[in-house]
Simulated assay, not measured.
Amino acid sequence: MTIVPAAEALDLDAETLAGHESVLYCRDEETGLRSIIAIHDTTLGPGLGGTRFKTYPSERDALHDVLRLSQGMTYKNAAAGLPFGGAKAVIIGDPRTDKTPELLRAYGRFVDALDGRYVTAADVGTNSDDLDIVGETTTHLTGRTVAAGGSGDSGPDTALGVFVAMRAAAERLWGAGGLKDRTVGVEGAGKVGGVLTKLLLDEGARVVVADPDPEARERVSAATAGAVQLAEYLGGPLEVYAPCALGATVTVARVNELGARLVCGAANNQLPTQDEDAALHEAGILWVPDYVANAGGVIHLVSGERLGRTRDEVTADVKRIADTAREVLSHSADAAIPTGAAADEMVAARLAAARA
């Protein structure tokens, strides 16, 4: 196994990695592991963030993804009031064909080499069963199965956090009725989108679920007794757009095409560029910043597994995401600034206070 600075492995200039404390590249010829761990900021504690196992066009594309994701984790953990900094990892490859127990154990040794500065968890392409195997070679992880002493799948709490944030924003837009009788489009029928759909139906919303995978659509249909409209790709008219798949889908043009006034979902890095934050604000589209809305999963991991809180306490912690969303939306309105900028200011203040 070879572990070197990413700048050396990928022939990068220092400016590319500016703002990150450490970015490391690992290659293990025996198992085929190629992985990058990016530690963005440890002001509040060890860097905590999931491991994304994904096929990338190039290692540079993988690097770009892990840098954005790790910075997002700093903001997510700070906004949620957790005692952790931000970090993220990617494993380059197809999880359907390249994921093996040997590779996961090698990845665990990579994590372990950072001596606790990085605490890993699951993300796209990895799950609790994988973490049980990673945990054979490192203790610096969270999100293992319940049988292995972990807190299990964090997806339901991610969905719950998105739901309470969405409801808080809907009440701000439409009054006490909130989401009742509103048409919500959920993009992505995975483990988060499926749970979110059921919560929305229970609230009295009309739900459209879109996913290009017919098996994913069928799972949601079966779980909801056919109470949702299913589509391969999301179209309008909608009142709420919930991006719960991959990022970079939230643009003014896209939201206007859907007809939505509110955007709130579980996907990370929803905006393709920071300019879109101001554009959404100017267009009168209310966006709940992704790292505020989707923090339920990391709260589940930290409160339930790392801090040992009860199930009821974890649920209460997740539901407080609604208060954070209200705080961000109120600051945005009072200061006449975009919601993303308002959330960033809140996080910056918390980090500055911790450094002081």
Rank of each mutant, 00 (worst) to 15 (best):
Y233M: 06
L230G: 13
A148Y: 07
E218L: 02
H64E: 15
I92C: 14
A176D: 11
D202K: 05
D277L: 06
H40K: 00
V252Y: 05
G152F: 15
R167Y: 00
D13T: 08
C26S: 15
D334M: 05
R105Q: 13
T16D: 07
D344S: 12
W174L: 07
D11W: 01
A78Y: 07
Q229T: 15
P338E: 07
Y75L: 07
A169E: 04
A222M: 07
G72V: 10
R350I: 15
G152A: 11
H20W: 08
G204A: 09
A210C: 12
V328A: 06
A279R: 14
V328W: 05
E257H: 07
G149W: 03
V146K: 09
W287Q: 04
G150N: 06
T158N: 08
G86Y: 15
N268A: 08
D11I: 02
E8W: 00
D61E: 13
V195R: 15
T224A: 11
L301M: 13
G304T: 01
V195N: 13
T97F: 14
C264A: 09
R68Y: 13
G135P: 10
D213S: 15
A253V: 08
A9P: 09
P272Q: 04
K88M: 04
D211F: 06
V4G: 12
M346H: 01
T42P: 09
G297I: 03
A279H: 12
D112I: 00
A168G: 08
T137S: 14
R217D: 11
V292K: 03
V134T: 07
E313L: 04
L179P: 06
G226P: 03
T249I: 07
V288T: 03
P212F: 10
A266S: 15
A18W: 01
R144W: 12
L141M: 08
A216P: 11
A7I: 02
S154E: 14
V66I: 07
P101S: 11
E218M: 02
V184M: 06
I321V: 08
L104I: 13
G185A: 12
L82I: 01
C26I: 02
N77H: 08
G308L: 13
D98S: 10
G194R: 03
R27Y: 10
K54H: 15
A168N: 05
R68P: 14
V250W: 00
L44M: 12
L271I: 05
I299E: 00
Q270P: 09
S221C: 08
G72Y: 06
D13P: 03
R60I: 15
P156W: 09
L24F: 10
P46L: 01
D211S: 15
A14E: 13
R52T: 11
F163I: 01
A176N: 00
V209E: 13
V184S: 14
A354V: 08
G81L: 04
I133S: 09
V124A: 12
L271Y: 05
A147L: 14
L234S: 02
L301N: 00
A169D: 10
T126K: 03
R68K: 09
L200I: 08
R254F: 05
E239F: 03
G85S: 07
R309K: 15
L33Y: 11
L160A: 12
V207T: 04
A245W: 06
P156E: 07
L258V: 05
E21K: 00
E21H: 03
L131A: 06
G178Q: 10
H281W: 13
N256F: 01
V134G: 00
I321L: 10
L141C: 10
A322D: 13
V240P: 06
